[in-house]
Design a binder for these strands. Sequence first.
DNA 1: TTCTCCGGCATTGCATGCAATATTCGAAAA
DNA 2: TTTTCGAATATTGCATGCAATGCCGGAGAA
Lengths: 238, 238
Amino acid sequence: MIESNRRVNASVPRTAKTEVHDAIKQRILNAVYLPHEFIREARVAQELKVSRTPVREAFRELISEGWLEAIPHQGARVSAWTERDAREVFEIRLVLEPMAVALACSKMDRVRLDHLKYLASQMEILTEKVETHAEFRNSISALNHEFHKELIAGSDNYRLMTTLENIVRSSVIRRNFTNYKPEHLQRSMRHHREILDAIESRNGGWAESIMRSHLLAAYDLHLNVSDLENRHQHAEDT
Amino acid sequence: MIESNRRVNASVPRTAKTEVHDAIKQRILNAVYLPHEFIREARVAQELKVSRTPVREAFRELISEGWLEAIPHQGARVSAWTERDAREVFEIRLVLEPMAVALACSKMDRVRLDHLKYLASQMEILTEKVETHAEFRNSISALNHEFHKELIAGSDNYRLMTTLENIVRSSVIRRNFTNYKPEHLQRSMRHHREILDAIESRNGGWAESIMRSHLLAAYDLHLNVSDLENRHQHAEDT
DNA sequence: TTCTCCGGCATTGCATGCAATATTCGAAAA
DNA sequence: TTTTCGAATATTGCATGCAATGCCGGAGAA
């Protein structure tokens, strides 16, 4: 346990490998590298002015994180994000996160609970102003990610934290709150508060249930948006 | 989806890195490298007669798989397996595997189901003779691992497969059936059959429930054995 | 036209040497 | 005696060059 925490808190030195890692991730998110595009060690090394060694190591990490996939002797390819991926991630979150908050009910300490309340407040403040400040959606998204992370951390299960972080990371960034209407955001905020209420009451079943609702509501919105996009796409094609 | 399957089936070329990877894993399992022992890139490279480069890459994989933990500027240390680790793995399996079999109920095809029945039969045959052939326990353990893997694969969720495989792999190897009495093995075999019955009936709730029982029973045995070992340890100390 | 085989080429895989950096241990000062 | 500072040392991090290997296209044969 002590070792695990030390590993979590250990500040990662900013080495060339991490620079390359982050740079590639950014380029994927900014659509500089497109899905299914091959990217080669040599090219990236040249672009980022480093040797192939750190690039190579960064590739390995990105592959294990799912950002790239390795095709032997052809290079690494940018993974495409499909509806299947969304479903897979959702199915897993739908059981792991409710379990995590149920565990958190008996294990979370006062400090973390207060921090979570603070995060919830910040999100609520931004939500009130989001109709006149569209750019707040990004801040809400970041706060929301941290909120969920802290919630999971309260479960006192280190493997669960890293597992969920790996699974959620890529999806959260690609799909933020840009499609939420104000009423949906408000519902989401109420869910957050209710989760905290359940934890404060040490009521695992309640916490589990409301977290499940929270995720189901989010996936429902996602599916609606996807449908619209697909129909739009179809209309363009014809 | 197609890519995922191709990636799963792609035969990994036996390169120096994989040799090093497997060699280190073997030495950990054979207690050549002991828990909390530091192992250095240079030393391993010398022992295995390769340069530090493939050793370095193997280390990275072993770290992400949980076999080693990196301590900056001190080397990589062999991870110790604690009761906390066992609990963490159990908690996660207890929600993911029941979910997986529930999904498998609606998605599993005939071929895989027949394969699972075959695996179950093989285990039952070995179980009958295990009292006079203690060495069969290893075979049962291997078959059991494949049984669970195939079951998960039936969920048609690729992330779930890799996630569970990563989490389970290390624990399964370290803790096999050596402590099961014949009656416990038989109970375990009945669970397997009942899971298959539930899947054949396409009854997700039933499958989920019996898988949960299966895991809870296994963890209960594990805890009893651990208690015995601890008490024994304590007796030796005094 | 189509199939097969072979050689060039692109890409990854590995070895080696050097650079950077944190740790540790000893010496000197308070 | 304790604390602090510094240099030696051990370790990881990175660059570069070469080796190995599988792919792809063109030439030749069926």
